[in-house]
Each structure stands twice: as C-alpha cells, then as structure tokens.
C-alpha cells in the first residue's frame, strides 16, 4: 500500500485533532481559530468536531489571550495558543518571557505551565516587514522555554504531539510557505521527542545544518552539489532548545565542513549559536571555518526581487558549499 501523504497544514491539524480527542484538557485560543480555521486554514474543520468551547475565538488581544493561556495551563488545562503571524509575538512577549518561562523556576518547581504557542515564520510571501520575520531565536534565548521548528509534515505531526504533551511552555514555529508541502504522515499516533536531531540526507564532504524552511533549501542544494560530485549531509536539529549538540557535532566531525542555515537573522541568531557549538566542540576536526547563512540584516522588503535577495536559496547555498570545498576536494 502506498504511504499516506498529507500536507504540512494537514499534519498540524491531525496532531491537534488527535491530542484533543485523547485529552479533554487541550483547547485552542486565538484569532479566528474556530469557524474561519485561521487565515491559513490550518485549523479548518476542528470546530465541527470539538465545538467553540475548545476552539476559542478571541479578540485581537495577543497579550490578553496568551496570558489567559498561561493561567489556564497552571490550573488544569493544556492550552494551545495560535499567534497568526510570528511577527505578532512581540505583543505577547511579557506573557511568554517574564511569565510562562519563569513560573516553574520562580515558584521553586511548584507551578507548571504546560502550554504550546504555535506561530509562523518565513519570508517570500510578499507580506513585507511586519508579516515575514523569523523570530525563533528570541525564544531560544530564554531559559524555561522549548522551541520547535518542524521541517516536514511527518515532523510537524510528531513534534506537535510531543509539544502538547510536554509539561513546559513550548513555542512551535511553522513555516507558512511550507503549509502546502506534501509528505508521508502515518495515520497512527506517534510523538517525536523534543531535542533529537535527524539526518535528513547522508553525505561525506560537507554538513548543512538547517532548520525549518531552510531544510528544504538545504536538500535542494545537496541535489545540486551531488551533480558536481560534492556529497552533502543535511541535518535538522528540529528543536533549537533543547539542542541536540551531539548529533550536530558528530556530523561536523564526519564531514569537516559546515554551513549553518537558518531563516532568522544571523546576527546573534540561531545560526550563530549552532556555529559556536561546532567551533567549541569540533574545532580540531574542521577543515574550514563554519559559515552562517540566514536572513539579511534588513527589515523584510516588500518588492519581490528585493525580498528574494534576503533569504538563502538552493543556488546561494550550493555556491557557498562549493567555495568551501574547492580547495580540499
């Protein structure tokens, strides 16, 4: 029997539906999450099964409903908060950073905040500077939060189920350009543990560490490189915290060359952190300095040719990899 395929959006929806069936404490807060199913239609159909009592449409009050989710998580529910565009997390930052992230620690371990904040990242949707950012580094910086970046429909379902079952606040970033991406997703229940990287493609000459949207770019670049007899390994951390340092270092030591790809800003960003982990843990196994590739350090512009220039592509990654390999191969 051929493997069942779902889109990324369908995989997210299936994870939510399964967890809501399995656990009556799970509920979803957000703007237009019920009948509208969100502007991306990721939640379409859920309200028919679970009703408006569990798909809770809110006013446009990100701080308010995120704060309510924090309190509800402390007192017996397992809320999933939907923040439509990742750019809007700025409005809920106090609730996530000063409240959700710190309550377990500040209370000496007495209170828990088992909640998930789902939101989006990624440029090239022609949405301009306030609807295109990838702000996952901000949350990765904060002790007490976990940060998840699925790159395939399979991972989206398994990681989201693990996030909902986690006892901690988890921020779950979905690349909005990936919602229509199809891939195999088993119908059965499975959860992917948070903090376990996956080698998406095995190779010998260079490692491409890539997150979220950049995994597909890295895989495309690896195909281009293969035609030029460069064997690229693609490894996806899947979570920026906890970070599977061991798997990243093992790949770096194996290939001796690493490019880190992340759609956030490189400056003080996720790519920088992973590059530092590699520099500290695999320096003597490297044949070249670790390279970072991410969004350009500009607000995301609207004009299509300008916007396209701000993010790494298969071609730019391929060129960078060739340059890194040319003296040694």
């Amino acid at each position: 029997m051929p493997e069942r395929e779902l889109t990324f959006a369908q995989a997210v929806r299936e994870a939510l539906a399964e967890e809501m069936r399995h656990d009556p404490r799970v509920c979803i807060f957000g703007e237009d999450v019920a009948e509208a199913g969100t502007p991306f239609k990721v939640l379409s159909g859920l309200v028919e099964e679970f009703g408006p009592e569990r798909l809770i449409d809110t006013p446009i009050s990100e701080a308010g409903f995120t704060g309510i989710a924090v309190g509800a998580a402390m007192t017996g529910l397992r809320p999933v908060v939907d923040i439509m565009f990742g750019d809007f997390v700025t409005l809920a930052m106090d609730q996530m950073v000063n409240q959700a992230a710190k309550i377990h620690y500040m209370s000496g371990g007495h209170w828990r905040v088992p909640m998930v904040l789902r939101t989006t990242l990624g440029a090239t949707r022609r949405s301009a500077a306030q609807h295109s950012q990838s702000l996952h580094a901000w949350f990765s910086h904060i002790p007490g939060l976990k940060v998840v970046l699925p790159s395939t429909p399979y991972d989206a379902k398994g990681l989201l189920k693990a996030a909902i079952r986690d006892e901690n606040p988890v921020v779950f970033f979905e690349d909005k350009m990936m919602y229509k991406l199809k891939g195999p997703v088993p119908a059965e229940d499975y959860a992917i543990p948070l903090g376990v990287a996956e080698v998406k493609r095995s190779g010998d000459d260079i490692t491409l560490v890539a997150t979220s949207s950049m995994v597909q770019v890295a895989l495309g670049a690896a195909n281009l490189l293969e035609k030029q007899s460069i064997s690229a390994e693609v490894i996806d951390p899947r979570t920026t915290w906890p970070l599977d340092e061991a798997a990243i270092l093992a790949s770096a030591k194996k290939t001796s060359r690493v490019i880190v790809l992340d759609e956030g800003y490189g400056r003080y960003g996720v790519a920088s952190e992973i590059a530092a982990v590699i520099a500290e843990g695999a320096f003597y196994d490297l044949d070249a300095p670790v390279k970072r590739m991410g969004a350009m350090q500009v607000p995301i512009p609207f004009s299509p040719p300008l916007e396209d220039a701000t993010v790494p592509t298969e071609e730019t990654v391929c060129a960078a990899a060739r340059a890194m390999c040319k003296h040694q191969l």
Binding site: G71, M74, P79
Partner: peptide
C-alpha cells in the same frame, strides 16, 4: 503581569 494569569485561572475553573 498577573492579570492574564488570574483570568486564565478563572477560565480553567469555569471550564
């Protein structure tokens, strides 16, 4: 900072 938390606790209590 706790206005959301208290309101969320009330939400859970009602639910």
């Amino acid at each position: 900072g706790s206005v959301g938390i208290a309101t969320g606790a009330a939400f859970a209590a009602k639910r």
